[in-house]
Design a protein around this nucleic acid. Structure first.
Lengths: 192, 192
DNA sequence: GTCACGTCTTGTCGCTGTCAAGATATTATT
DNA sequence: AATAATATCTTGACAGCGACAAGACGTGAC
């Protein structure tokens, strides 16, 4: 670690993002406070402004990081799944749900908040990469139309969102292999 | 209308809910302000407290009203659809999406916000009624398992959420009958 | 060694939600 | 009918918030 503290405080931008994710996970997006993030990182309340502009800028940067974690969650499932295209698609869907249930506040930041600026170049790039990954897998697994794409995405996203919000109790009641099997069964229907 | 103005100002509770819905639709839930709602209704900033307790209490009452509109949107589609159980289920799904796209902020209040208190008796009752309606239709249309229920709900909710947030551009690009046909095709896959 | 620049702090502003206290209008009691 | 009790609404205050301005501080360039 040679370039760890290039300036006064260290790599404050990265430290603020870590603090922001923790704050978001604890309080939820509707109680997210920029000043609390600054306090958690041990800096003054105006320090974040220089790195992110304003609070939405900080959430935009956090969302970009969130998309990387989102794709990592899918990659983790794909790595332990069978190699055929259909199994890989199911794995990606399970990773989609994994991310939503283990990091619900971050998931809502990505898909259910108006605060991140999705026109920001970095965020747009990460979001597009996530979409492209799913889309590619749909076509690799035999999908041929926009409807195929929409169906797979809708199923994965719907389960992810409902489980993240604690609404789908019929499935949330299970865990482990049973739960994966149920989610996989639902995902399977999207692509005939 | 004999009992329209039983007290000082009139039926302030109802007037506040109307103002709150307008405010929510214009500003979104993340910029929702109780004081702005009071100003819109022409009362002091502390007037809402007596009727709703606090801001979350007001959003709880608004969410209960939202669930009634949610079911009304489904009923409107069902009324003009064929009578067989499967067509009725598709219609309910189309109504689900209609509500999300025509009232996105209210939809997010119901399904994507931590602010309404879902343990509130009225809200719990309305939410349960909405769930029961969809569940009944799934079984009427031949569904037999928890997976059938989850699949239909996930598809409808996923499309609704993604369209409400403006994410599913492939389908948002269409409108009218074409759009209904695509959404209906996606819904159809959930129940084999 | 001095200057310019990037980084962070302090202080201030208007706005927010909540609480306390008081004013006003309706209803109940006698 | 007069008075008491209660429900409704207003005013005023408080701490916390995001944003902005000004200044202090450390770093690197020349």
């Amino acid at each position: 670690m040679t370039d760890e503290k290039p300036y006064h405080h260290g790599d404050l931008r990265a430290a603020l993002l870590v603090a922001a994710e923790a704050e978001l996970a604890e309080k939820g997006i509707e109680a997210f406070s920029l000043r609390q993030v600054a306090k958690r990182a041990g800096v003054s309340h105006a320090a974040p402004a220089h790195h992110f502009g304003d609070a939405n800028g900080m959430l935009t940067a956090l969302a970009a990081e969130g998309y990387r974690q989102f794709r990592a969650a899918q990659a983790a499932r794909e790595a332990v799944a069978d190699g055929d295209a259909r199994a890989q698609l199911i794995a990606a869907g399970l990773g989609y749900v994994d991310f939503a249930t283990t990091r619900p506040a971050l998931f809502r930041l990505l898909f259910g908040s108006a605060r991140p600026d999705h026109n920001d170049p970095e965020l747009a790039r990460e979001g597009h990469a996530a979409y492209t990954h799913l889309s590619d897998q749909v076509f690799a697994a035999g999908g041929r139309s926009t409807v195929d794409e929409a169906a797979v995405w809708a199923v994965a996203h719907g389960m992810a969102d409902l489980l993240a919000m604690g609404r789908m109790k019929a499935i949330a009641a299970f865990d482990g292999a049973q739960r994966d099997a149920m989610i996989g069964a639902v995902l399977s229907r999207a692509l005939p």
